[in-house]
Design a protein around this nucleic acid. Structure first.
Length: 210
DNA sequence: GAGGAGATCGTCT
DNA sequence: GACGATCTCCTCT
């Protein structure tokens, strides 16, 4: 029952593989309010407030044209990190869903910073004012590439990692937070299947992207 | 606050 | 050789 960080995240609160071994739409909704934790020299924790589901036979999903070296994690077992590099400069993090052989993933789009905020700011290369404003905190993790940078998530370091390993330096956990109302909208930044409502956000949460 | 351009390179055609 | 599950900075209102 090791405890890490101020929020006292216990190992038994790490989300198990059964959590991820479901339809990405179910996982995307269930992930709202959960915690993403980076545990290395410092602990950085954010609460997930925005996700997107990417399905099997989904033209917008990286897995749509079959497995490649880049997307193979999407075809692997549930509960692993699929981290990809895009636009020549950004990393984005997904969690794999469903079963081995059935591609599916949930993209983490925004977090509410909870602890390790100074370390997040450092990783983002920004200076926070002494009484950091909500605007500044928002800019740390409101967007898939921003949150990846804030938590030091890269393809080289994290792609393919098992997020359910109790000794993982990157994992997802839950506490007693109760997610409120969820709003479902179309996904952002894609050019195919643009009309499918597969984006999930915590209603009235100021840390969602855009 | 909204909108547009540019950055920059891995990946697949 | 084209494009991208994005971000930042700049301009205009």
């Amino acid at each position: 029952m090791e405890e890490v960080g101020i929020q006292k995240i216990k190992l038994h609160s790490i989300l198990p593989q059964s959590f991820y071994a479901r339809d990405p739409r179910v996982v995307a909704r269930a992930l709202l309010g959960k915690l993403l934790v980076r545990r290395d020299t410092r602990v950085r924790t954010g609460r997930i407030v925005e996700t997107e589901a990417y399905l099997e036979n989904d033209p917008a999903a990286h897995s749509f044209r079959g497995p490649t070296p880049r997307n193979r994690v999407m075809f692997g077992p549930a509960g692993h990190a699929y981290v990809y590099f895009t636009y020549g400069m950004h990393y984005c993090m997904n969690v794999s869903c469903q079963k081995e052989g059935e591609p599916g993933a949930v993209l983490l789009r925004a977090l509410e910073p909870m602890e390790g905020i100074a370390a997040m700011a450092k990783a983002r290369g920004v200076k926070l004012s002494t009484s950091s404003t909500q605007r500044e905190l928002r800019a740390l993790t409101s967007g898939p590439a921003r949150l990846a940078q804030a938590l030091g998530i890269t393809r080289e370091r994290d792609n393919g990692k098992d997020l359910t390993d109790p000794w993982a330096e990157l994992f997802l956990a839950e506490d007693d937070f109760e997610a409120g109302r969820v709003r479902v909208t179309v996904r952002i930044g894609i050019s195919k299947a643009v009309d499918k409502k597969l984006r999930y956000v915590l209603e009235r949460n100021p840390f969602v992207s855009r």
